[in-house]
Nucleic acid binder design. Sequence first.
RNA 1: GCCCGCGUGGCGGAAUCGGCAGACGCGACGGACUUAAAAUCCGUUUCCCGACUGGGAGUGGGGGUUCGAGCCCCCCCGCGGGCACCA
Length: 851
Amino acid sequence: MSRYDFARTEAKWQEIWEEAGCFAASADAGRPKYYVLEMFPYPSGRIHMGHVRNYTLGDVVARFKRAQGFNVLHPMGWDAFGLPAENAAMQRGVHPAVWTKENISTMRQQLRRMGLSYDWNREFATCDPEYYVHEQRMFLDFLREGLVYRREAWVNWDPVENTVLANEQVIDGRGWRSGALVERRKLAQWFLKISAYADDLLDALKDLTRWPERVRLMQENWIGRSQGARVWFPLAGRDDRLEVYTTRPDTLFGAAFCAIAADHPLAVECAAKDPDLSAFVAECARGATSEAAIETQEKRGYDTGLRALHPFVSGWELPVYVANFVLTEYGTGAIFGCPAHDQRDLDFARAYGLPVVPVVAPPDIDPHGFAIGAEAYTGPGRMINSRFLDGLAVEEAIGEAIRRLSADGNGEGATTFRLRDWGVSRQRYWGCPIPIINCPSCGTVGVPVEDLPVRLPEDVDFGAPGNPLDRHPTWKHTTCPGCGGAAVRETDTFDTFFESSWYFARFCSPDAPEGLERDGVGYWMPVDQYIGGIEHAILHLLYSRFFTRALRRCGYLDFDEPFAGLMTQGMVCHETYRSADGRWLSPDEIARTADGIVEQATGAAAIAGRSEKMSKSKKNVVDPEGIIGRYGADTARLFMLSDSPPERDLEWTDAGIDGAWRFVNRLWRMVEAAVVEPAAEGGTGKKDPRRERLRRETHRTIARVTEDLEKFGFNRAVARIRELTNAVAELSGGAAAERAARRDALTVIVRLIGPLMPHLAEELWQRLGHDDLLAAQPWPQADPALLVEDRVKVGVQVNGKLRGTLELARDAGEDDVRAAALALPKVMDAIAGKTPRSVIVVPNRIVNVVI
RNA sequence: GCCCGCGUGGCGGAAUCGGCAGACGCGACGGACUUAAAAUCCGUUUCCCGACUGGGAGUGGGGGUUCGAGCCCCCCCGCGGGCACCA
């Protein structure tokens, strides 16, 4: 018997599909469309297991939907701008464009070997000027529509390299290469007004019913709409006042202090007169800009000497601190602190000796004895120590406080969002140039559309720190389109989220000179099923939702939501290994012996650690190319699908891939055996119950696998197919009727694995005597008559404990079921002569006898 | 620090609507085939007690609702993801 030659077979079918143009898509108003898209990759060098998983999932959906009769669009391209290309340029002297193009060609070859059903005619890379020219135009349209503005914002600054650092380049507050303590600096930057859509982006989440609930929740929290109040505290001895935002105006009588951000205008003003405060403000500017870094640092403050006057109590003065935990960008950049009911305020009050007065008494507690210890009370309750608010519940008190503030002219109700505008300026070379010219007399001027694209210069120098575009001798010097005078180009480039915020629409018309071609976009969009990592749950997906709305406002398209369905896949993990002296070891560097794990090179004992996300730094990576070379693409695909459900993390194991490989070969052998057998002449003789059972199981499998695939339960689908395979193997016998039964079931199995293991399926389909392509076959249909079982097994419990089972006719009468259950010997033992208090009968499922 | 998620045999997981926990696979053990090995095939495999019939426990821990909880509610523990310049 021949062995399955995956290498030859996979190459053969890939070529045949390609020649037949099986996966080329074209709009066809007469057929229902289905757009399936996987998040396109950053061309980092080679594909990794995360890609293999992501693209396998997408391919199964694409092939399944195609078989179901949909007109499927399934494209692939390259998210080609980004930081790693510049790092490669600095470390190895290779130009980012060259590095990127080489990576793309390597990765394209790797993807092709996986047998993915892409329409490769639509491929593009975002670093091509033919792509980014359109986003330069979009940006200018956004500018015209008032969706773009420029302001100063903080960046991470490495004082040794004189460079802006990305958050990931800041490790424990230091620059990743220089090791210098990172500082915060302010730079003028471009912002997209995503906040203008905050309400809409939030409210529309509820209609995204085919998105995972947790992703919607994450976006909801990210947008962070909060209802509260702006409160104006007059400043003692001054004419101005301090504006504070709070969600808890009910706790104003518990106020102990006000705090402002280190770059609040009042802080700047006071620091100018107070060298110690000035030093404190400078200290606040040390450290990274990320929220995590700010929130985890020690909470510290400095008294400005200013005194804020309480809005409700004349003569009550609160100290005003500069505090390192108050964010400029949220609310008004100033807060009031109520230590009794906010943990951060409590910690601050304890550190600076400020009073802690409880104003909310928890229910069921004597308000007189209520005091705050080490923990703030943030729960519900009734107001105390709060004059006109006393006795009100928290919610009522919030409303009453706002009414009183408004009436007195000391404040007003306000809605605030956590969502901040999207800063798109990056001080880097390998990105899309921002099409702006800075003119000394006209100010910032958009590049005229006819002059687009603004192309990146190719001759750049990565030898020195900072932005190569800024250092380039000639590139930035130009003339102002307004006055014709000498002017300078914007040397910042776009955040790379810019490219990924509209690429899904470009796939509909990848070559259209106008960018987004209305017919193509109108036919294919929105994406019916988008698939990618959970790590993109917020930023990429939210930016894309916003961008689509902005494009609509500018007339590019006419819908709001780009992704109707979303599936977020888990990470691919692997066990980690370390040598005795703590070096990370790769899976190739270790060997398993009777004594445990050893380092192959030295034979020294090694330690296996827990399974973690595959990463180069922990060396626990398995290269897909090696796996595909050894086992073939279908085996790799099967393993990706079989054990873990897509949304969960998947653990890569050698044993798992071996198991998948065994199944591929088992199926191959079974079909070979069926083909070699003398031709089956159809059913002879009378109905055999075993054959009938296989036939029923075959149809039940079609129904269940179809349902599993609809719900992306790929692991369940694989299990069902394996079960049917086992059932085929169990039907022994060489009679013509048995042979025919086995062959029928195997034919169904081959059709069902079509989306999962397309090469194997295609080869077996051919061997079963078909001369057309399985890729073009419709999905098999289950015969409803064969899905209904006439006998059912029913569990029988006594007081919730299983005591036996009954096999009964389906839908048997309740009295009969009860009688049969009570007649079971074990049930009678358990009842021990007592009279059951009740007998619960759930038809066709369970009986529970309660005594 | 804040937000989100997850936790079921030795392992990955299944249990679709609150109704027989452990499907399917991996591993392990036993057997067949073989000079031998690989491959393959057959069987056993949640744990504890027990020779067996059988009995008991059991879905991270504790409590609750229910005739009945892996699933719903409350508290706790552990692990992971995101936090706006990685993509």
